[in-house]
Nucleic acid binder design. Structure first.
Lengths: 330, 330
DNA sequence: TTGAAAGCGATACCAG
DNA sequence: CTGGTATCGCTTTCAA
């Protein structure tokens, strides 16, 4: 910038005005500066700029997901990117793999780079480390998992409602023995979905049989094993609800291995591509990751624009997509 | 940092030494400084640090993909993140949507934030804007699409080899009329796969019938329409090769609509989850996005570590996964 | 081992 | 409309 100023024979401040498109620069100087910028291949340094600027904005946000390669997470990521771009904001994305240590490390790294805000899918129920950063002044929105503190907003899916709808659908088809596969119970959504399952059973007059429930199941292969175990027990379920997208896939594999067409009805939580082309097509409780991402990003930017109201808890509806895997009890 | 120095009654430089774990600070002062850091909730400012530091590193890289939500892209993203984390480096991720304007905008934004390097899936054959940034000093690795310049490295899949293998597999099963669906021909991989198809036909003594080829097909729905058109023509193909993951899905939908079990054999380029559970299971040419991402990241970091050799072109193998959708001609 | 002073690239404030 | 000067938070250089 010094070089530009020297070449254009103006002051530093004038170059700064041109670069920031501030009004009140004569056409003559404006041309000279722009010419000098082109000649020297000058590139504005946004980091130095934000250091000196009063608002200290870096036009940068952090996004911490469970795994950027999971389709649910990457759909959220994309939705957030689209909102951020309209604000000329770049997104640092990272994966926690449900590991509190990685979460803490990532948040530290983001804070050190002075991101303007953070959207995070918290790893566990203990938000102390995250809230510590929040108190130090980092605006924060939780996505997919509820905040207990009113210092942060959260955007979550209607997990319980979705599970109740799934139970209802199966109960109305005559199922009495409905199994459930759930992710790590430290994950908020896994707990909520389980509670929705329990509520659903109660609502539709069904017994909760602990033998039909497998929790803390993580990943495709564990789900496959858990489903096999469920099918092999003394009184196997006639229907199965899976509480996460990878668990759904594992259960489908196990049911498929047990017979060419499912002998057991099933409903998955979270829709996935090609669910309608499997045999049978898989009934699911669909979430809306795009709406969740958009909502979270808008909330964060509202905070950056000065919204100081207490933390909101925003719930995005889920809805049952009836395909064919959850037919009548046999 | 000033406050920390004041509270610990030491100089700024001493605090800097403690924060950067430089040797040669007495235990006494070290304790005092660490205590002050804790008391004040001091957070190191990595942006100010890199501004002053001689190497000017920000420990930040940019990653520009076609769409962060595409499973192929997000697998690459994850692999790059894992390599970057070992170097304490954060990743800015973004989607170009195959739009040259968005690509240029994103690269500008990254350059302004002084990323240490860039991994990019170039939108089209014209790399002028990207190479301009490269010349200005931004280390750059192309992923998935070949660089024509020796100033950048590229990591690509063996697209032609994969396509030839697919044609061979179909030819050996007796197919004579093999159709092809390709993405925008401005995309390097789309062109390469088409050329591999043409080469394959020539190698196995088959005629290239332009009526069986549809190019510039973009997205699931367009692929569905193109497949319907292909099936409806005077001499329809007995087998179909799709040149991209979304096109594969569109073709599957169209074939499924035409009959419960594929009347037409097919092979998709790029593997996808559940391909083995469809009816019939889908034979594909699998890429290895994780290896591609790792390789690209390692290449970039090698450059950052001072490797000044001419740009390398690294090819990651593809391999045919034979399932059941590409059986004998009927 | 420790610190004082200069300066990274930019913006803010105020004077002309 | 334009420019000089202080300063953002930190590292570097060099002297003590």
């Amino acid at each position: 910038m010094r070089d530009v100023a020297a070449l254009a024979r103006v002051s530093l401040k004038t170059v700064s005005r041109v670069v920031n498109r501030e009004p009140g620069v004569s056409d003559d100087l404006l041309d000279r500066v722009e010419e000098a910028i082109r000649l020297l291949g000058y590139r504005h340094d946004a980091t130095a700029s934000s250091l000196r600027r009063t608002d200290r904005r870096t036009a940068t946000i952090g996004l911490l997901l469970d795994d950027v390669a999971n389709p649910f997470s990457s759909a959220i990521h994309r939705a957030i990117e689209d909102v951020a771009r309209q604000r000329q904001t770049l997104v640092f994305a990272g994966s926690s793999d449900s590991d509190a240590g990685r979460e803490a490390e990532f948040v530290r790294a983001l804070a050190a780079r002075r991101v303007d805000g953070l959207i995070v899918m918290p790893v566990g129920p203990d938000h102390a480390a995250l809230l510590h950063e929040r108190q130090l002044g980092l605006p924060m929105v939780f996505i997919d998992r509820l905040a207990t503190s009113s210092a942060v907003d959260s955007v979550v899916a209607d997990n319980r409602g979705g599970l109740r709808a799934a139970v209802r659908h199966l109960a109305e088809a005559g199922h009495q023995r409905i199994g459930f596969l759930g992710d790590l119970r430290t994950i908020w959504t896994a707990e909520e979905r389980y509670l929705g399952y329990v509520e659903g059973l109660a609502t539709y007059g069904l017994q909760l049989d602990p033998m039909l429930v497998r929790r803390d199941v993580r990943g495709v292969e564990a789900a496959e094993r858990a489903t096999h175990a469920l099918l092999g027990c003394a009184h196997p379920p006639t229907a199965l609800i899976t509480g996460q997208n990878l668990l759904t896939i594992g259960a489908i594999r196990a049911l498929r291995a047990a017979g060419p067409h499912f002998q057991v009805a099933m409903i998955g939580f979270d829709d996935f591509p090609l669910a309608d082309l499997l045999s049978p097509p898989v009934t699911v409780v669909a979430q809306d990751p795009v709406a969740m991402g958009q909502t979270a990003a808008l909330r964060l930017f509202a905070r950056l624009d000065g919204d100081e109201s207490p933390g909101k808890q925003l719930v995005v509806p889920t809805h049952l997509i009836v395909r064919d895997s959850a037919g009548a009890a046999r």
